[in-house]
């Protein structure tokens, strides 16, 4: 629990720091073309209010964390412990998945993503391939056929096509 407390302090402290930075540099990140005289009509009025809430409550949470005020985790998080390596690699895989869909098309990138993700999370038998194929095909059926969602034409395919 000690570790979670300090991590929580770092997390909320960091966000509240970012909020402060944004708050005091608002003239640089918001284009203030208009010279509104009324405070409430200024485009930074409401965001500044929100940022102030973040900053103040964030600091209060840091203090709470230092005082080791107990807090509840939700049910799923109580029952399991973080496996940062697997989660991080799944998130990276997700990033590659989104990039690859432009290259090799939705169907193939989904198939590849599912196979790699199943492999990473420990499903390494033949079930892997069968499941991945089934899931990616049904996703393709639902989204591309049924809902007619438009995906970019595979970039790689058109590249090869042009060089022909």
């Amino acid at each position: 629990m000690v570790q979670i407390h300090s991590l929580r302090a770092v997390f909320t402290g960091f966000i509240s720091l970012v909020a402060c930075l944004l708050m005091f540099n608002s003239d640089k990140v918001v284009s203030l073309q208009s010279t509104e005289t009324d405070l409430y009509r200024s485009p930074v009025f409401f965001p500044t209010l929100a940022l102030a809430i973040i900053a103040v409550t964030g600091i209060a949470l840091v203090i709470q964390a230092f005082k080791k005020v107990p807090f509840m985790l939700d049910m799923d998080c109580e029952d399991s412990s973080p496996k940062l390596f697997i989660s991080a690699s799944l998130l990276f895989l997700f990033l590659f998945y989104s990039l690859s869909s432009n290259w090799i098309g939705y169907l193939f990138s989904t198939l590849l993503f599912l196979m790699t993700a199943f492999f990473l999370s420990g499903i390494r038998s033949k079930v892997n391939i069968v499941l991945s194929a089934l899931i990616s095909l049904s996703l393709y059926a639902i989204f591309v056929w049924l809902l007619d969602i438009w995906f970019p034409k595979p970039w790689l395919a058109s590249l090869l096509a042009n060089s022909n």
Partner: peptide
């Protein structure tokens, strides 16, 4: 698989 897709498009481009 990639090549198959590519050839499909290759035809149309040609």
């Amino acid at each position: 698989a990639v090549m198959t897709v590519a050839t499909c498009f290759g035809f149309s481009a040609a």
